[in-house]
């Protein structure tokens, strides 16, 4: 069921940018997670998942981010998600307190700037 969502992956300066568009639910969340995780290497500093163009995400989508975040931070890599406020995913995530558990940003630029400062610190 990959028709619901599209995934574009890119890498620059050791940071991976995963741009998801469409909808995320039970039918495609795991596939999306696998594809993103497979693209990551041990050399990468971290991952930014851009959900700006995601029009719908349910708790399966939250799990996707939560698991990716845990996997990466366990390996000392940086994880950030881009979720503009007023979007359906952001509201759903905020309503269950996900905002405190993963690093969320309004724009890709802000997420990348944060990721860069974090990787310098470490």
């Amino acid at each position: 069921m990959r028709e619901l969502a599209y995934l574009a992956l890119a890498r620059s300066d050791g940071m991976v940018l995963a741009e998801v568009s469409g909808e995320i639910d039970l039918s495609n969340a795991e596939d999306l997670r696998d594809e993103i995780a497979e693209w990551m290497t041990n050399e990468d500093h971290g991952l930014v998942v851009d959900l700006t163009s995601v029009t719908y995400a349910d708790s399966a989508g939250m799990n996707l981010l939560f698991i990716l975040s845990r996997q990466l931070t366990d390996h000392g890599q940086i994880f950030a998600a881009v979720l503009p406020s007023e979007s359906q995913p952001r509201r759903a995530f905020d309503m269950v307190g996900m905002g405190d558990q993963i690093a969320m940003f309004e724009t890709v630029a802000k997420a990348q700037a944060w990721a860069k400062s974090e990787s310098v610190d470490t």
Partner: peptide
Amino acid sequence: RDDILTATGEAAA
């Protein structure tokens, strides 16, 4: 509209 869709989506999931 989003809220109702999200809640229904969760119940169906």
